[in-house]
Amino acid sequence: MFHRAGFLDRRAHAAKRPTFAYRLKSPVIRLEFDLAERVAPSQAREFAFAFADALVAASERLGGLRLTASLARVAWGQEDWRGSLERQFAGEEHPRAAVDAILRDARRAATDLLGATAGGRLVRIAWDAAIQGRQEFVASLGLAEVTA
């Protein structure tokens, strides 16, 4: 097991029966545990897409397709927000960090385009829609509630 985990080097050992000699790869063994990372990537991705989808729908009701396009561009760099979010998850080792970044960018863009109050409300609508049926997941992730 330690050999499979990469801590030990294994070499064949001359004997009547096949045996192995083991040696530590390094005198220092560093172990890291990320206890906050209790989220499956697929769940995090699903939550982020539900949030963005609701945000886009609410912004369309508020200001039409032009506002939606501006919001996506300011928040995530381009109007094709799905592609942008996909890339964000692909390039991020920790799904929790990707979700955080997506929420943060959405808040910033909504505030820039609509002001703190209207922008906050828009994000809140998207948050409320995204957490429907996912309360346990959101709690386990320890995501801060988005407030208006």
């Binding site: 009701r61 508020l62 200001g63 039409g64 032009r66 506002l67 209207a118 609508i125």
Partner: peptide, 10 residues
């Protein structure tokens, strides 16, 4: 032209 329905987010 910017048409905004502020009631939509209320």
């Amino acid at each position: 032209f910017v048409l905004v329905d502020l009631g939509a987010i209320r």
